[in-house]
Structure formats: structure tokens, C-alpha cells
């Protein structure tokens, strides 16, 4: 290379570099900025919004979306999708509750809830990898199947008053640790685990690599199927965690638990800047996405705006978030 070529190249590279840095900063802070602006806006209308009591409320609402969002971020990063998370949540919740209610189990039932979640995720993963069926189709099917199983084993009846048999069952949903409600602690822990996996493990690298370019990853000797199985099982585990939290908070379990919650989780991931094509995204973004949705719901409720309008606003926010992301990408 002549010296001139290399200078031209390094200026080019430096320019790219600057653009990327601005781009990635915006990717993370764009949603955060909207969160802050929105909060200030709501605060200016309703002063009660900025109280610690209300924020505890918001965080508790966001916790469910956040827990599911962690697993969903993994799935979407690989270029997949999981539509069955609401159904997995319901099935694992009623499984644990049945053992408590009808078979006299104690706290061990929580482990069964987690286990059923993982098993459902594993089943999704097995059908996707061995059957080579697109995740959208597989989980569209299992969404029905898992929900059906949950309804069948409970005969559609709610299982209530779990604390009657296991007095401590409510610790995962209603107790506080210091100033923090248990759901928030659980969501935070799930986030930390997910974050560490993505950043410090081979699974983390391969999640991005599979979503970025599956062929090149396979040609590098990576056993793709094994890692996809791990991802869907982890998604199932997150559903199990959410199931424990939700049934503990409501002191009951029911087959129609968390209906439609998969769409909220996907929305949180997408608002957080993760590409639905896979390969790009952050868990921090997903957390902000979950918080943003909870803030909007909470703010609109405080302002006495009807639930119907809330749906409209949330829908618009999802489209807007992706639009802004698209514009950013187009520029760089």
C-alpha cells in the first residue's frame, strides 16, 4: 500500500468509526431518552407520578415483561421468535399450583414450575432444530398446545389460596427486600444472569453469531443446534421464573394466565432496539423497553385515560420505536 492509500483508508475507517459510535450510543440512549422525556411529561401533568410509591408500582408492572424480555432477547438475537411464552408461563404456573393444592407439596413445587418451563422451552427447541421448522410456526403451534394442556389439567378452574397450604408462597410476589418489591429483585437477577451470559460466555457469542450469519457460524465448527436448544430452554426457564412470581403475587394460578404476554415481551425487546432479524441488540435496551411500556400504561392511567386509548398509544409506540431505529440505520 502506498502511504496515500493507507491515509485515505484510515480516514475512511475513522469516519466509519465515528458514525458507528454515534449509532450505537443512540441505539442504547434513544429509548432511555424517550423514557426520561416521557416521564418528565407525565410528571408535569400528574405530580403523583414522581413518588417512590408510584415508581415501585411501575417497576412491579415492568417486572413481568422484563423477565420474559430477557429470554426473548436471546431468542430474537438468534433470529428466532417465541410466541408460546404466555402459554408456557400458564402451564408451569398451574403445574406448581396443582402439586401444592392437590398433592400437598411445599415450596419444592417452585422447582417444578421452573422445570416445566424449561421442559416446554426444550420441546420448542427440539422441534425447531430437529424438525427444521421456522420458530414462528413451531411456537404458534405450541402456544395453543401448552395453553390447552394447562386448561385440561385444571379443568379451566383457577387454583386459589396457595398460601393456605404453603404460607410462605407469597414471598416471590408480595414481599419487599428493603425498598424493593420481590418481583423487581427477581427481574433484576434475571437480567444480570442474562447479561453475564451474553457478555462472558461462548453461548453469548454464538447467540449473536447465529443471528448475524448462521452459515458462517456453522462453517466455524459451532454446533448450532445445541446452542439453539440452550436458548429456547433458557427462554422456558424465564417463563418459569415469571410463573413463580406471578402466581406468588396473585396467590393463585389459572390456565388463562399471561394471555398475550408474549406480544408485550416481544414489544419490549423491539422497543429496546434489538433487530428482529437477529444479530444485533442489547439486554439493557430490553429493560428500558419494558420500563417504557409500564411508564406509558401507568401515566395514562394516572391521567384517567381509558384502557382503550392505552392500547392505541402502546401500539403507536412500538411502530415509532422501530421507525426511529430504521431511520438511524438508514443514515449509517
Amino acid at each position: 500500500m502506498t502511504s496515500r492509500t493507507s491515509t485515505a483508508e484510515s480516514t475512511a475507517v475513522a469516519g466509519e468509526q465515528r458514525r458507528i459510535r454515534i449509532g450505537s450510543v443512540w441505539a442504547t440512549f434513544g429509548p432511555l431518552l424517550s423514557l426520561i422525556i416521557l416521564s418528565l411529561l407525565i410528571w408535569s401533568q400528574e405530580s403523583v407520578f414522581m413518588t417512590s410509591g408510584n415508581w415501585t408500582n411501575i417497576a412491579r408492572q415492568a417486572a413481568l415483561m422484563a423477565i420474559l424480555g430477557v429470554g426473548m432477547t436471546f431468542v430474537i438475537l438468534t433470529g428466532g421468535i417465541d410466541l408460546s411464552v404466555g402459554s408456557i408461563l400458564a402451564l408451569s404456573a398451574v403445574s406448581g399450583a396443582l402439586l401444592i393444592d392437590r398433592h400437598g407439596w411445599g415450596m419444592e413445587a417452585v422447582l417444578v414450575t421452573l422445570g416445566v418451563g424449561m421442559l416446554c422451552g426444550l420441546i420448542n427447541g427440539l422441534i425447531i432444530t430437529i424438525g427444521r421448522i421456522p420458530p414462528f410456526i413451531v411456537t404458534l403451534g405450541t402456544m395453543q398446545i401448552f395453553r390447552g394442556v394447562a386448561s385440561e389439567i385444571t379443568a379451566g378452574e383457577p387454583i386459589s389460596f396457595l398460601t393456605a397450604s404453603v404460607p410462605n408462597f407469597n414471598i416471590f410476589g408480595t414481599r419487599n427486600l428493603g425498598p424493593f418489591p420481590a418481583p423487581v429483585i427477581i427481574a433484576f437477577c434475571t437480567f444480570v444472569v442474562g447479561f453475564l451470559i451474553l457478555r462472558y460466555t461462548r453461548l453469548g457469542l454464538y447467540v449473536f453469531a447465529i443471528g448475524g450469519n448462521e452459515t458462517a457460524t456453522r462453517f466455524s465448527g459451532v454446533q448450532i443446534n445445541r446452542y439453539k436448544l440452550a436458548v429456547y430452554t433458557f427462554m422456558g426457564l424465564c417463563c418459569g421464573v415469571a410463573a413463580v412470581m406471578l402466581s406468588s403475587r396473585l396467590n393463585s394460578a389459572k390456565a388463562d394466565f399471561a394471555t398475550g404476554e408474549e406480544l408485550n415481551a416481544i414489544a419490549a425487546v423491539v422497543i429496546g432496539g434489538t433487530s428482529l432479524f437477529g444479530g444485533e441488540g442489547t439486554l439493557v435496551g430490553t429493560m428500558i423497553g419494558a420500563l417504557l411500556m409500564a411508564v406509558i400504561r401507568n401515566g395514562l392511567t394516572l391521567m384517567h385515560i381509558s384502557a382503550f386509548y392505552q392500547q392505541i398509544v402502546i401500539g403507536a409506540v412500538i411502530i415509532l420505536a422501530v421507525l426511529v431505529d430504521q431511520l438511524r440505520r438508514r443514515k449509517s
Binding site: N213, T215, T217
Partner: peptide, 20 residues
């Protein structure tokens, strides 16, 4: 671009991919 690299990933991740 299709078979050798994951273009979205950094240089370091691509190098580590086959033998972490």
C-alpha cells in the same frame, strides 16, 4: 461475507469463533 464472517460482529468475536 456469507460463509466466512459474521459481518455484524466485531473483529475480535469473529477471530474467537472457531476456537474460543
Amino acid at each position: 461475507k456469507q460463509q466466512g464472517l459474521v459481518l455484524l460482529l466485531p473483529v475480535a468475536d469473529n477471530i474467537a469463533m472457531a476456537a474460543p
